[in-house]
Write a protein that binds this DNA or RNA. Structure first.
Length: 574
DNA sequence: GCCGTTTTCGGCCCGACTGTTTTCAGTCG
């Protein structure tokens, strides 16, 4: 049993305890679930090495939870959990994914209407049974239906950040086979779309049979949809479909292009080929029967009279025209970031200390990080007030000194993720903000203000001369909630006017700004930052997803302030 | 159920919104 599986069970226990109004005990389980999920060390390994005592050393884990972990690791089952489940046999994973449904609501719906899963829920709501329950009404029923629709709409797609690790793992498995010359995940994974519908693997091999055998018998596979000589399809246990396609080496580039997409981009390429009297398919670019290109993508674009188009740009948003006119931007590259401008610590809702975050960032090749913890308005995170943030400065100074003594050029800068209050004022006084190296501000409340009010609120916040960066500017959470109503064109205009930088938040379920707004910023000359919003050292590599997002928004190194040398960046900030 | 520079018991992030209600329960961050 791995950490994720244990964490899921603990998460469910927390919900069950919440049903019983035992919220403190629930919090205890929730906390451990979070820690397990973020931990890079498997609880199973910890237990193997040090037994029960070692489990108890995990923060948040005491005698009781350690024993439950032991039972899960040993037997794969947990009596305590089974009992809770028996008492209220509902699909918590499903029901909790609906926004607005918490423990209490789920319990009531089960007790009164026997709602166990989303199907039951939809039926009950459509039959108008929910609105008649005590404590419910027209609105609650309406909202349940609306949120059901939203979760249906978005649940077929997976987050890029969830899927890339899996895609790479399978890629590696394929590459390690002696029959395989090359293997690569194509499709929307290669284009680094923010969500992924299914996986496409392209493999070069002269001996496809054993490759196919391996692919369809991977442990992730729940069902084989098709299995042939050069192409197979499977369904994974996580409900995602995956295809594999095997082509000869001379077709690699054409196949790569074809399987990377997007579909519309491919159609546009084919049309250009047709105009030249040629034919483009997944095996190559052909003049009559003669193949004139196909081994690499580069030679195909070149033959078509185009500059090479990076996969992230292949979305039919003007890349064909720009390529033909040799006017494509030179995109920011993976590895171009000098530092991370948005990092949390255990002073608020992060898991690691300042020093741990710094050392982890250093190990990833960063030259600096900005500690940007929450402020007091966000009470649930124990946000910093005036006094505590000043205390944090002292700690940062100490760690900086320590790092410098170790002959490191790495620096930790002082920042904040300051809450924007309802009226657009900020959660820390100017006299504090003015002393910080970098001030970033965020909306964390009142997501449902009317658009005008929300826009004015944010405009007022970034008008403060101490503010440098607007974090996750639209507040959307992929597959969970839409952006709040805000006039982004107006925000971008105002950012330009005030010299405010807009953040590209790299967290897999945020990726906020999204590509279209990034492109607007680039066009307007509004600078961007790419930050991870890390709440633990494990989150620091998320910058890859932010960079991907920036590339999808046509951003160059010059557009991204933390791709510049630190000195230059600090000088630019207002 | 966990935890300890106010400590081994009594705290445990808490403010605001929504939708139901006439003062609050549930949910969210």
């Amino acid at each position: 049993m791995n950490n994720k599986e244990i964490a899921d069970i603990f998460q469910e226990i927390a919900v069950y305890l919440e049903m019983e109004d035992d919220s403190f005990r629930a919090k205890a389980y929730e906390k451990v679930a979070g820690i397990l999920e973020d931990s890079s060390e498997e609880a199973g390994d910890i237990y193997k090495k040090g037994g029960l005592k070692a489990l108890e050393d995990i923060p948040g884990v005491g005698v009781s939870i350690a024993e439950k972990m032991e039972e899960l690791l040993k037997t794969g089952k947990l009596k305590y959990y089974e009992q809770l489940k028996k008492k209220t046999p509902v699909d918590l994973g499903q029901l909790k994914s609906i926004e607005g449904l918490g423990a209490k609501t789920i319990k009531t719906l089960y007790k009164k209407l026997k709602v166990r899963n989303l199907n039951d829920l939809e039926k009950a709501a459509k039959q108008g049974k929910i609105k008649n329950l005590e404590g419910f009404g027209e609105k609650s029923e309406e909202n349940i239906l609306k949120n059901l629709e939203f979760s249906k709409k978005s649940s077929q797609r997976f987050l890029l950040g969830q899927i890339i690790p899996l895609a790479r793992e399978i890629e590696l498995r394929l590459k390690e086979m002696k029959e395989v010359k090359n293997a690569v995940a194509c499709g929307s994974v290669r284009r680094k779309k923010e969500t992924i519908g299914d996986l496409d693997f392209l493999v070069i091999s002269n001996n496809p049979k054993p490759v196919m055998e391996m692919f369809v018998s991977m442990p992730e596979v729940s069902r084989i949809l098709a299995q042939g000589q050069t192409k197979s399809s499977v369904r994974f246990k996580n409900e995602m479909d995956a295809d594999i396609r095997i082509v000869p080496e001379e077709s690699y580039g054409a196949a790569l292009c074809y399987f990377t997409g997007s579909k519309d981009h491919n159609i546009a390429l084919r049309e250009i080929a047709i105009k030249k009297g040629w034919k483009l398919n997944e095996y190559g670019l052909f003049k009559g029967d003669k193949m004139i290109a196909g081994k690499t993508e580069e030679e195909i674009y070149e033959k078509l009279g185009m500059d090479y188009i990076e996969p992230e740009l292949r979305e039919m948003t003007g890349e064909i025209e720009a390529s033909l006119a040799h006017k494509l931007p030179k995109l920011i590259n993976y590895g171009d970031l000098e530092g991370d401008l948005h990092v949390h610590t255990d002073a608020t809702d992060g898991n690691n200390t300042i020093e741990e975050m710094a050392r982890a960032a250093m190990a990833l090749g960063m030259k600096y990080i900005v500690i940007a913890d929450h402020t007091k308005r966000l009470a649930m995170t124990r946000g910093l007030d005036e006094k505590r943030i000043q205390q944090q400065w002292k700690e940062i100074d100490l760690v900086n000194k320590k790092l410098a003594a170790g002959d490191s050029k790495f620096v930790i800068l002082k920042g904040t993720e300051c809450d924007i209050l309802k009226d657009g004022s900020l959660d820390l006084p100017d006299k504090i903000l003015s002393k910080l190296d970098i001030v970033s501000v965020s909306v964390h409340s009142l997501f449902n203000l009317p658009e005008k009010e929300q826009t004015e609120r944010i405009k007022k916040a970034i008008s403060n001369s101490n503010v440098n960066i607007l974090n996750h500017p639209t507040g959307r959470m992929i597959n969970k909630r839409d952006a709040y109503a805000v006039d982004m064109d107006e925000i971008i205009r105002h950012a330009k006017k005030t010299g405010t930088v807009l953040e590209i938040n790299s967290f897999p379920d945020r990726l906020d700004l999204k590509d279209e707004y990034i492109k607007k910023c680039v066009e307007a000359g509004v600078k961007l930052s790419i930050s991870t919003d890390s709440h633990s050292v494990q989150h620091l590599p998320f910058s890859e997803y932010g960079i991907a997002q920036a590339r999808r928004g046509w951003a160059t190194k010059n557009d991204v302030i933390n791709a510049w040398p630190l000195e230059k960046m600090l000088k630019m900030l207002k």
